[in-house]
Design a binder for these strands. Structure first.
Lengths: 181, 181
DNA sequence: CTTTACATGTAAGACGTTACATGATTAA
DNA sequence: TTAATCATGTAACGTCTTACATGTAAAG
């Protein structure tokens, strides 16, 4: 198995969703992929440059009226092929997601129960906020973007986020009850 | 906020669970923390060394009959204080967990539906396997380790894994149905 | 005239894995 | 004698974030 740089393919994919500059890719990630992928500018710009070097994309300097100049990237046919073949390959093993709350909980016999309950409460708040963010994005997609060809798949990824977050929220509530005894 | 090295605290915590050598810490992680934390030897040994340098732990060379020598690490009172204060601090923002399947799904309009369904099927298999691993560990803890003071908290972290994995499994099944239409 | 949004980029460093290197002891 | 388990460690490399650096253009 050759080592795959997933971030590279994330950007390759984003170039097919109407994003063509580093800046707009970043906006898309922060707005719509945020619950399962995150990329900083420190990765985006070097990766775009690299895609061009590898012949997977082309650049074009464009002038805009009313806005600064920007660089527009477009997939080459090699780039499209690379994206396709990545999409076809089955994903490798599910990585372990680090969870700091569970790590603390694992050692919580050294702690008073009410402190542990507060920790969970804090986590619960963050999960709830996240859940509402998902609902907002869902509404946005349903109302404004149903014309976009990608939107059914975007809704599916959101559904995943909603379901797992809801399960985590319920765990918080039940665990707090358990610890109160 | 000072930057916290979570891995350092993970090891600090593990030194309170009956693990005192790099090797046994690694075993514990692979066996019981695997669903929410992972550490390689490349991190463990340098971190243990660092803990001693910072005065949070002490080392002792020990000889064993029938086994190679090993180094035993024990928390100092400073180490216990450091662990306590880390446990008391509320966790920072929930990090985005990268999910390669969702990333591919996000771009899946470029793919035939049956390939996407296969991807999800592969993911489903991995989730199911993971779920059964959780059940095994749960059984092990319930049967053999109920005397251990930490076990109630270990069961709680397992419960988290089971619930979120189950939600993901159900999402797989429902999404496959959806894509078959 | 100042803030916000648009836009691109780099350097340092943190974090983490993998592969490598070594060696003791036991059981088959 | 060979494989498995126990045991410790490092070097190279990949990935990613943060902070820094720079600049345009619109809107208030």
């Amino acid at each position: 198995m050759t080592k795959e740089n997933h971030t590279k393919y994330a950007i390759l994919g984003l170039l097919t969703t109407g994003c063509h500059s580093g800046y707009s890719i970043k906006q898309m990630i922060d707005g719509s992929l945020n619950h399962f992928w995150k990329i900083s500018y420190g990765q985006i710009y070097p990766t775009l440059k690299q895609l061009v070097e590898e012949g997977l994309a082309t650049v074009k300097d464009t002038t805009q009226t009313g806005k600064p100049n920007k660089k527009e990237y477009y997939l080459t046919s090699d780039g499209k092929t690379a994206l396709q073949s990545w999409l076809n390959n089955p994903i490798e093993a599910i990585p372990t997601e680090k969870n700091e709350l569970l790590l603390k909980l694992f050692f919580s016999r050294h702690q008073h129960a009410d402190i542990t309950i507060n920790q969970i409460d804090h986590y619960l708040n963050q999960l709830t906020e996240r859940y509402h963010t998902y609902l907002s994005i869902e509404q946005l997609i349903t109302e404004n973007l149903l014309d976009q060809a990608d939107s059914p798949f975007w809704l599916i990824t959101l559904d995943y986020g909603k379901r797992t977050t809801k399960a985590a929220i319920e765990w918080c509530e039940d665990t707090q009850e358990k610890l109160k005894e």
